[in-house]
Design a binder for these strands. Structure first.
Length: 269
DNA sequence: AGCTCATGGCGAG
DNA sequence: TCGCCCTGAGCTG
């Protein structure tokens, strides 16, 4: 259940384990048999992350494109792969590592042309050095949609998910309901710069920590929330608990089918 | 055993 | 906006 930071983290780990190696690829579950056959036995040449999308390249000019969706999970280990347990869509094995993929929403083989076509549909990714934030700004400044929606739109901010959305808006005192057109250039620049720092950090740790040092464990005499995913956050999954900065009860609403958390006092329209 | 929930995204209406 | 797809964990009985 990953946001872009986790995909980048896994891309690095997959690269370290398999890049430059001849790999055996199969699908114990069977749903990716045909795809696995197209790349198995080939040298794995590249692992790229764009937002929440992962592309694994092989020396026959084919890519395996993976999107984990809400349930997908990679498990990477050293040594021999264990007996398959549960539903394993894809398994990659080299002489000394193995990786298991479960529950992805997308798992498909792409040609080189299709892969490049695919990445043009993905917006700028704050974790990538080659990202162009002006593409995001151009969409936001003329949009009447709520900024809370725009942050979740992968054509606007690639890799931002429900946790970063809630947390970055809290950090900038912006209501998730404010329309994109009411976001100033300075606010956008600050949000983007913050996402670069937060998400790059998150890609190294594999978790999402957003609480500023000065608001650490003793803010208002309350411990900052350590969420189930392992990171320390201000508002995410803290509905009905007091805001760490002002004590107001954190609110929960449904925004396009996803849980939205915010502090109605700290975050202004 | 069965239900609910989750860091996502798509297509139908 | 809704329903549906993907899987497993953590409850409840």
């Amino acid at each position: 259940m990953p946001e872009g930071n986790v995909i980048h983290n896994q891309a690095r780990r997959l690269s370290r384990a398999f890049k430059g190696k001849d790999v055996f690829v199969d699908s114990p579950q069977g749903r990716f048999d045909a795809g696995a056959r197209q790349v198995s036995g080939h040298r794995l040449t590249s692992v790229q992350a764009f937002g929440k999308h992962l592309y694994i390249g092989f020396d026959n000019q084919l890519w395996v494109h993976v999107h984990l969706g809400l349930f997908g999970k990679w498990q990477i280990g050293r040594g021999q792969a264990p007996e398959p347990r549960g539903l394993i869509r894809v398994r990659i094995q080299s002489a000394d590592h193995y990786a298991e993929l479960r529950g992805p929403t997308v798992c498909e083989v792409l040609t080189d042309g299709q892969m490049h076509q695919s990445i043009t549909r993905i917006g700028p990714d704050p974790i990538r050095a080659d990202a162009d934030p002006s593409r995001a700004w151009e969409r936001i400044r003329k949009s009447s949609s709520a900024i809370g929606s725009l942050l979740m739109d992968q054509r606007v901010f690639a890799g931002v998910g429900n946790i970063y959305r809630a947390e970055v808006l809290f950090r900038h005192n912006i209501s998730p309901f404010r329309p994109g057109s009411k976001i100033t250039r300075a606010q956008f620049d600050a949000i983007w710069a913050d996402l670069v720092v937060l998400m790059t950090h998150g890609s190294k740790t594999g978790r999402i920590d957003t609480v500023r040092e000065e608001h650490g464990p003793d803010a208002m005499g309350r411990a900052a929330r350590v969420d189930r995913h392992g990171g320390e956050v201000y508002v995410y999954r803290r509905a009905d608990m007091p805001c760490l900065l002002c004590g107001t009860v954190i609110r929960l609403a449904d925004m396009q089918g996803r849980n939205l958390y915010w502090c109605p006092r700290c975050q202004r329209r």
